Computed example of a mutant assay.
Amino acid sequence: MPSLAHELHLLVALMDRAADGLLARHDVGLTYKRFLVLLHVSDADGPTQRDLADRLGSSEAATSRMVAGLARDGLLDIGRGAGNRRELRITAVGGERLAAAGHVLGDHFDALVTSQGVDPTDLTTTVRRLAAALREG
C-alpha cells in the first residue's frame, strides 16, 4: 500500500498538470511554472536569482533561463541591488497576469477541496505547518 508521502507526491503532480491545463484554458498567458516564479518574486522583497532558485527548489541555471524569458516578455524587471546582486521585481503586467492566474487556480482548487468536505483554510494551515516542519527538520 502506498505511503502518505507517495500519495502526496502523486497529488502534487496531478495538481501541477491540472494547473497548467486550467491556465491554458483560461488564456491567462502563463504556464504554471511561470506562475510560480512570479508568485515567489511577488512574495519576496527583491530576491536574487539564487534566492528564487532556492525558493523554487530549482537549479540556478534553470531559474536564470526562466527569469530571462519572463524579463524578455515584460513580466519581470531585473535591477541592480547591493554590490553585484541583481534583484528581481514583478512588473505591472506581470502582476496582472499573476492575479488573473491566482484567481483561476484558487477558485478551482478551493472548490475541489470543498467538494470533498474539507475546509480550504484548514487544509492550507495544515500544509503550511507541515512545510515549516520539513524546513526545520
Rank of each mutant, 00 (worst) to 15 (best):
Arg97Ile: 11
Ala19Lys: 03
Asp51Gln: 12
Gly81Thr: 10
Asp122Phe: 07
Arg55Tyr: 08
Thr125Cys: 02
Leu105Gln: 01
Phe35Asn: 04
Gly74Asn: 02
Thr121Phe: 07
Leu123Val: 04
Ala13Asp: 06
His26Lys: 10
Leu39Ser: 14
Gly95Leu: 06
Asp122Cys: 04
Ala44Gly: 10
Gly69Leu: 09
Thr121Gln: 08
Gly137Asn: 08
Leu4Thr: 07
Arg85Ser: 12
Gly137Met: 11
Val113Phe: 01
Val37His: 07
Gly83Ala: 13
Leu76Lys: 01
Arg55Leu: 15
Gly94Ser: 06
Leu112Tyr: 02
Ala18Pro: 00
Ala61Gln: 11
Pro120Tyr: 01
Leu14Thr: 01
Ser58Trp: 06
Thr91His: 01
Leu56Thr: 03
Gly94Lys: 02
Leu70Ala: 08
Asp107Arg: 13
Val67Glu: 05
Gly106Cys: 06
Ala133Ile: 11
Ser64Lys: 11
Ser115Glu: 04
Ala71Val: 11
Leu123Glu: 00
Thr48Pro: 01
Thr114Cys: 03
Ala82Asp: 08
Leu123Gly: 03
Ser58Asn: 07
Leu130Met: 10
Leu112Thr: 12
His9Asn: 07
Gly95Val: 06
Gly81Trp: 01
Arg72Gln: 14
Leu88Val: 06
Leu134Cys: 10
Gly79Gln: 09
Ala5Val: 10
Leu23Val: 10
Ala101Lys: 02
Gly46Lys: 10
Arg80Asn: 09
Val41Met: 10
Val28Phe: 12
Arg17Met: 14
Thr31Gln: 10
Leu130Pro: 00
Arg25Asp: 13
Ala18Phe: 08
His103Trp: 05
Arg85Glu: 09
Leu52Ile: 07
Leu134Pro: 00
Thr114Lys: 03
Gly46Arg: 10
Ser64Ile: 12
Ala133Arg: 09
Leu134Tyr: 04
Ala13Cys: 08
Leu70Val: 09
Pro47Arg: 02
Asp122Tyr: 03
Gly102Gln: 04
Leu105Glu: 00
Ala44Tyr: 06
Lys33Cys: 13
Val118Ala: 09
Thr48Val: 12
Arg80Ala: 15
Arg80Asp: 10
Ser58Leu: 14
Arg89His: 07
His9Ser: 12
Met1Asp: 02
Val37Glu: 05
Gly137Ala: 15
Val104Gln: 01
Gly21Phe: 09
Leu22Ser: 05
Ser59Met: 08
Asp110Ile: 05
Asp43Met: 15
Pro120Arg: 00
Ala61Phe: 15
Leu38Gln: 05
Thr114Tyr: 03
Met15Cys: 12
Ala132Val: 12
Arg50Pro: 00
Leu38Glu: 05
